[in-house]
Design a binder for these strands. Structure first.
Lengths: 345, 345
DNA sequence: TTGTACGCGTTATCAT
DNA sequence: ATGATAACGCGTACAA
């Protein structure tokens, strides 16, 4: 195919009326052709569509039909975590005849409301929301209109809504017990933002392990990282300046773990010789490092599958059904980043 | 705010007519209020909107106004490379009053046409396309309608269209000359898919360096990786089975480099002691590995900025202007993954 | 199977 | 600044 020059800019693209005229049929017939129903002279219509460069106007169609066959997806960003979930949801939605309208809400201030307005303005049939625990006026407004909504990973407190979440607490406890079993007694934690449910649960899991083992909980070994790489770096810096130094670190999400890794490398602290490390979340990076990082892996494909399933069931539900809550288990993936501490203290 | 139960599902959300009635004004006045123009009794209208839970229907508005203030973005996937560009474009578009409609085209077969139809069906005002070099009937059809389009990284052959691309060839030559300067004479290359312009250019840059230095070009040292991790792994496997073995490898994109790293690690081939490595593309991983990987880094933020600028200028252009072509330079980031070969042969 | 006419929610226009 | 009304492009119901 050769496309070497641009056609002169048409003020508007062809409409179904023009196609009907060109094909010598009525618009109803063209509409049926477009929607795959049988018509008498399909070839004429096809040729007219081809000739005019016609594209169906989905906007106009949706006004009348009141359904866009589109699900809005609201994610903080396109990082590796959400990217993988998005790939899954988009796929599952498509198989059910839906498209995904994906918008990020964390790039600038108050863009969450903008994002919500955009999606609702485009009359998505439902809304999938990732990693959002904070209240938002716009979102609450939408929720109250009865818009089908499904959250994954966390949801605003007190909202009775469809959700898919992972078990954070117990799995963290088990990971910490692994460290304790091999002799660690000073385990530092880089926490996410306190007040966000998943991070609260991970911290609780960390504490429970200490309580179960009769170990003291040292506040100096709990450093806030707020979920970002930069703050993960600084939290690790504080941890490694504490006295006594921790012999192991648990980092509550992968962004912060990257910060931790940066600091450890700068300080020339070797894993696992000088320190053991466990991270929540599994990303490619952690498997490729030498040694690989032992992680608590969230089942991303399952989260995507379940949240899509829940949404589709909500969309097809004829009557009101109570919100469903799905809880998935994480896996501990042992790699080489943990080892007994160098010397007992 | 408390949101503990769902309102009964309304069959449809409030319309501008209902708002107008409730506020005792005409729909024209409500429309003006919504669009930020001055009205006499804004508070009444605000209250009515609040009360009725009204959300403007962007679909209906766009039918009449013929503008959606929306730009479609077409990317193969949400990998780290595109994720960073998307963050930039979305931001720049928003600042200009546009929203981004992002769709991936590589998740399943023939989904490119579906994606194009979706975006055009939603009447995006323009289209930004990433990493697409193949022809596509649907896309060509759109192009010929005069839809503003801007490509980044590559574009279909023969299309005279706005584009932002990086300089692949010379920078690769310079990177190879770095290897040659420190004594390498057997440099392997893992190529991307031949026929895709950026990868053709990178291969040419590799060859030019050899020609300039008077080194032979050994076909056995050029292994196709087709851009994927799996094939990068296998290409590296073939390279390390060649005789004589290369003392350095250049990998043409980051996905393939990850495959290369996996193979080297499995075979216990150490970087840079046993082999030197340079990769095209810079991702987090490469800076965190020990040693860090020397890379040719594409200016992602600039690509995003430029492609958005080009698109916005095209959108605001009153008359036909010839397509613009922006070419950006890459940077060579030296880390620790290169070193003179162990022994001269 | 086909054609016609109306409805969808908004914006644009124009007279006030 | 406001109100009334005609588009906008498509789906759908109904009559043919």
């Amino acid at each position: 195919m050769e496309v070497t020059s641009r056609a002169k800019k048409p003020s508007r693209s062809a409409t179904i009326v023009e196609v009907a005229t060109a094909a010598n049929v009525s618009i109803g017939t063209v509409s049926r052709y477009i929607n795959g129903l049988s018509v008498r002279k399909p070839e004429q219509i096809r040729a007219a569509i081809e000739e005019l460069g016609y594209f169906r106007n989905a906007l106009a169609g949706s006004i009348r039909s009141r359904a866009t066959k589109t699900v809005g997806i609201l994610v903080p960003n396109f990082d590796e975590f959400h990217a993988r979930i998005l790939a899954g949801t988009a796929n599952h939605l498509r198989q059910a005849g839906y498209s995904a309208l994906t918008v990020t809400y964390a790039d600038t201030a108050n863009s969450l409301s903008e994002a919500v307005d955009f999606l609702v303005g485009h009359r998505v049939d439902g809304l999938i929301v990732g990693n959002l625990s904070a209240e938002n006026k716009s979102l609450a407004k939408v929720f109250q209109t009865g818009m089908p909504m499904a959250f994954y990973n966390t949801h605003p407190d007190g909202w009775s809504v469809d959700r898919v979440e992972v078990e954070n607490c117990d799995v963290t406890t088990r990971a910490m017990e692994h460290l304790i079993d091999i002799g660690h007694t000073h385990i530092g934690i880089v926490t996410g933002t306190i007040g966000q449910r998943p991070h609260d649960e991970r911290l609780r899991g960390y504490r429970n392990a200490h309580i179960n083992a009769g170990l003291p909980i040292d506040p100096a070994l709990q450093q806030p990282g707020n979920g970002t790489r930069r703050e993960g770096y600084e939290a690790a810096n504080r941890l490694m300046s504490a006295s006594p130094q921790p012999t192991a670190i648990f980092s509550s999400n992968y962004q912060m773990t990257i910060g931790v890794l940066q600091l450890l490398r700068e300080r020339n602290i070797r894993i696992p010789d000088d320190i053991s490390l466990i991270s929540f979340d599994d990303v490619d990076l952690f498997a490729l490092l030498d040694p690989g990082i032992t992680v608590i892996a969230q089942p991303l494909a399952d989260i995507a599958k379940e949240v899509t399933r829940v949404m589709l069931e909500r969309l097809s539900a004829q009557q009101m059904v109570p919100p469903v809550s799905v809880r998935l288990d994480c896996n501990i993936v042992l790699r080489g980043s943990t080892r007994p501490p160098k010397k007992a203290d």
